[in-house]
Amino acid sequence: MNGTPVGTPRPLVGITLDGKAVKVPEGSTILDACRREGVDTPTLCWAENLTPVNVCRVCVVEVEGSRVLVPSCSRPVEEGMVVGTDTERVRTSRRMVFELLASSVRMDRSDADVLDWMDHYGARPERMGARDEIATVAQPVKVQDDLYVRDYERCILCYKCVEACGDDAQHTYAIATAGRGFDAHISTEFDVTLPDSACVYCGNCIGVCPTGALVFKTEHDMREEGTWDESAQEVTTTVCGFCGVGCNLELHTQDDRIVKVTSPADHSVTHGHLCIKGRFGWQHAQS
């Protein structure tokens, strides 16, 4: 009854990864195995501090005996599994996922690795047709307060923000997926404005958004002004100055000013999640 449950070492499972025999701990996902072995695997909807929803399908791999490709982010390894991560089918599907997304969503402010993967897989979204002749999610940007900007023209519907708002972090449930099919979108109830919703402005949705659809208003405004310059930014990890939880803050600074705040996803205190004060309550450091 006493003390910490001691983590017993997990037994190893043997799989074949791209023709190479490897051993990984039982319970690992195929993606875990890929990362251990240094096999670069694209992901969009996966994050280390969220439950895998496996909806983007960009991490698919070929598993011998499986009729269709399987999402590596959520499929646990099994003894004897034979996995191919760079087969023709895998490359086609990954390229197509990027092409489908980039033809309907503005991806240019995505995380750098996303843009690198699109390049690596040779995505040519323009072959889907001219943007004004095909369906896209183009829509006006939502600016409803001084903290958040929601630019759903950049939303790839990875569900990360919904998870961070709900069961995986904040338990506020201010947003959910509404509508269906291509019309599916992230929304408050009846699309009420964010200040009229249950939102508590923790910004955890912004923290997990991979495409720049959800951003600090500071970032949005600087981008609009043309002053946002990530190459001129520094990131410093410190501890939030408010309550006693001890959340770690990553202060992103440019020209000696804080321009946004994130939190390390791998830190044991809050796994990358913050509250409104930690995320946005830093204006007094600017005055």
Partner: peptide, 25 residues
């Protein structure tokens, strides 16, 4: 400011000592 302009430590509710670091002048 202690948390954004100073190097040092703070101790949280769970007795965890953590580093603060200066990010801005």
């Amino acid at each position: 400011l202690g948390w954004a302009e100073t190097d040092g430590t703070v101790t949280s509710s769970e007795r965890r000592v953590q580093r603060t670091r200066a990010a801005v002048r």
